[in-house]
Computed example of a mutant assay.
Amino acid sequence: MDKLIHVVEDDEDIRFIVEYILIESGYRVESSATAKEFHTYMARVRPDLILLDVMLPDGNGIELCRDLKSDIKTEDIKIIIMSAHAAEKAVLEEACADDFISKPFDLDYLIDHVKKILPA
């Protein structure tokens, strides 16, 4: 599988587990812990899917998602928002995300949502 997923998650343990399960499912995975790292990454690489946490130490995932979806160069990149604090309907409408996963989540649930958005 050649699909590239970028995980934007500041919690190192969650990021590690998500990366691991996605790699085990056959995806290529890269990650960022901050909005700044993510912007640097996006300047040089275009992922197929972004898993985006809402609460980042230097930014807001909802705003990042909205910015990506309103830019003609990135509007078609699939984005799944992950949050323990946000309400699904509000996030999907406000951020224009393709999907939402509430934390904590079951790893099988995560993979099911990823495969739905980014089929093999």
Rank of each mutant, 00 (worst) to 15 (best):
Leu51Met: 09
Lys69Arg: 06
Arg66Lys: 02
Pro57Asp: 13
Ile81Phe: 09
Asp108Leu: 14
Cys65Trp: 11
Met82Phe: 08
Asp11Val: 05
Arg15Phe: 03
Ile101Met: 02
Asp106Val: 05
Val29Leu: 08
Met82Cys: 14
Phe16Glu: 15
Val8Ser: 00
Ala90Gln: 07
Ser25Arg: 09
Lys103Gln: 06
Phe105Pro: 04
Met1Cys: 14
Cys65Phe: 14
Tyr20Gly: 05
Pro57Leu: 05
Leu22Tyr: 09
Ile17Trp: 00
Ser25Phe: 04
Leu107Cys: 15
Asp58Ala: 05
Asp98Ala: 08
Tyr109Ala: 10
Ala35Leu: 09
Val54Ile: 11
Ile62Thr: 00
Ile14Thr: 13
Ile14Asp: 02
Phe105Glu: 05
Leu110Glu: 09
Asp58Val: 11
Ile101Trp: 01
Ala97Gly: 04
His85Pro: 01
Arg46Trp: 05
Ile117Gly: 00
Leu110Pro: 01
Ala33Lys: 03
Ile14Phe: 05
Gly61Val: 12
Phe100Leu: 02
Asn60Glu: 12
Tyr27Arg: 08
Thr40Ala: 08
Glu94Ser: 13
Ser25Ile: 06
Ile14Arg: 04
Lys69His: 06
Val54Asp: 00
Asp99Asn: 12
Asp71Glu: 07
Leu4Met: 13
Ala35Thr: 13
Arg15Trp: 11
Lys103Ser: 07
Thr34Trp: 03
Phe38Tyr: 09
Glu75Arg: 15
Glu63Pro: 10
Arg66Phe: 03
Phe16Cys: 06
Val7Ile: 09
Val45Trp: 05
Lys73Glu: 01
Ile72Ala: 12
Val45Arg: 11
Glu88Arg: 06
Ala97Phe: 02
Ile72Cys: 10
Glu63Gly: 05
Leu107Gly: 04
Lys78Ala: 07
Leu52Val: 10
Ile50Gly: 08
Pro47Gly: 05
Gly61Gln: 02
Arg46Cys: 07
Glu19Pro: 11
Leu4Gly: 00
Ile50Ser: 00
Lys89Cys: 10
Leu64Phe: 11
Phe100Thr: 04
Ile14Asn: 11
Leu107Val: 09
Phe100Tyr: 08
Ile62Asp: 03
Leu92Cys: 03
Glu30Gln: 11
Leu4Thr: 09
His6Cys: 14
Glu37Cys: 15
Ala35Cys: 14
Ala95Met: 03
Glu9Ser: 08
Ser25Met: 07
Pro104Phe: 12
Ile111Pro: 03
Glu37Tyr: 03
Glu30Leu: 13
Asn60Trp: 12
Ile111Gly: 01
Leu64Lys: 11
Ile79Trp: 04
Arg46Asn: 05
Ala90Trp: 10
Asp11Gln: 08
Lys103Pro: 13
Asp112Phe: 04
Glu37Lys: 07
Tyr27Thr: 06
Glu63Arg: 14
Val8Tyr: 00
Lys89Asn: 15
Asp58Thr: 06
Leu118Ser: 04
Asp48Met: 10
Lys115Arg: 15
His6Ala: 01
Thr74Leu: 01
Asp112Cys: 02
Phe100Pro: 03
Arg66Ala: 00
Ala120Phe: 06
Met1Gln: 11
Glu9Cys: 02
Ala87Asp: 12
Ile101Val: 04
Ala86Glu: 15
Ala95Asp: 05
Asp71His: 10
Ile81Gln: 13
Asp13Lys: 12
Ser83Cys: 00
